[in-house]
Design a binder for these strands. Structure first.
Length: 319
DNA sequence: AGATTAGGCCGCCATT
DNA sequence: ACAATGGCGGCCTAAT
């Protein structure tokens, strides 16, 4: 996106899920430092009912939504109340006009009903994935993804995944640094990858997004060895200076910071799943010595390695 | 815990 | 005119 403000319409259907409604409004509208202008739209401006009985005031109607660059459909209760026809028409029209369409949770049902998801990959809350697939055979439902980015049409799983998707959009629009900064401000985990499973808190292979994807994947396989910027640059066939720059653009982190973050992640997993000594964990994670591991672990996880392992095993055994 | 030192980070500018 | 690149150098961080 360029400098111009980007209009985001949050399209509240009836029986909307209040948490889902809040996510896009809050994330995009969190600070006016971001070039987003958020409006809450409904088929008829006025009060919108939420599933928990709250009433929210939508200041704008469908015309405003149609003028927006991005339309977000939060989750609603599609089985209690079908999405109204005007809203479905709006979504179909917006698609043809090249607008970006986003759903959170069961909001995907409205997109599917509007035909917007036909032939596309999409996801929704895992409890509704089978229902979505059954009702809309033309939609390629991925029940495990946190979110799915089909370019113009993006869908996400539950509420938390909605946050991830919003951050992903900010990264797309404004770069990874801005998204990471926002994640920090709203105290979310930075950049969970969309391909990540809904209930496994561990990225399988990190997505090869951006031109440095292969280099990052390669680095992940050699985390236990010392890696310098020169090594990474060599692998990426560019200069160290460019490597740093592109790394920052794609991950929001400088190369060494990213490496350290990954290494602490490995150490954390080793502490959770193995009985290796702290020193051995440090070595295998590429952090050299126990002293060094302690330094970074405390900095990033907020606990000492041994204490973390103890707390984790107690929690895992239900103690 | 503090000092040392190698290496990383990043703004700036010339180059492509 | 523009965007991406790569080298330079000063300041900062991190590992020992």
């Amino acid at each position: 996106m360029t400098r111009a403000t980007h209009r985001v319409a949050v399209l509240a259907l009836d029986a909307v899920l209040p948490l889902d409604l809040g996510i896009p409004t809050q994330v995009f509208g969190y600070t006016d430092e971001l070039p987003y202008r958020v409006s809450l739209c409904a088929v008829a401006p006025g009060e919108v009912r939420t599933t928990s009985g709250f009433r929210v005031r939508a200041q704008a109607g469908l015309a405003t939504a149609l003028a927006a660059d991005t339309i977000v459909v939060p989750g609603f209760a599609p089985h209690h109340r079908a999405a109204p026809a005007p809203a479905l028409d709006l979504l179909a029209t917006a698609l043809h006009r090249g607008r970006r369409l986003v759903s959170i949770c069961t909001g995907a049902f409205a997109l599917a009903e509007a035909g917007v998801l036909d032939g596309r990959r999409a996801t929704t809350h895992w409890r509704h994935a089978a229902g979505l697939a059954a009702a809309h055979p033309a939609v390629r439902v991925d029940p495990a993804a946190l979110y799915v980015d089909e370019g113009q049409v993006l869908t996400s799983a539950g509420v938390a995944a909605g946050i991830d998707l919003c951050l992903h959009l900010i990264a797309r629009d404004l770069g990874a640094q801005v998204a990471n900064r926002m994640a920090r401000r709203i105290v979310a985990a930075p950049h969970r990858d969309g391909g990540q499973a809904q209930y496994i808190d561990r990225p399988v292979p990190a997505a090869a997004t951006g031109s440095l994807g292969p280099t990052r994947a390669w680095a992940l396989e050699h985390l236990d060895q010392p890696l310098t910027i020169a090594d990474l640059a060599r692998h990426a066939h560019c200069s160290p200076r460019s490597l740093s720059r592109r790394f920052a653009a794609e991950t929001g982190l400088a190369p060494l910071r990213w490496l350290t973050a990954q290494r602490v992640g490995v150490a954390r997993e080793l502490l959770e799943t193995s009985g290796l000594s702290v020193d051995e964990v440090a070595r295998r994670a590429g952090l050299g010595s126990a002293a060094n591991l302690r330094l970074h672990f405390r900095r990033r996880v907020g606990a000492a390695p041994a204490g973390y392992r103890k707390a984790f095993s107690q929690a895992a055994t239900g103690g």
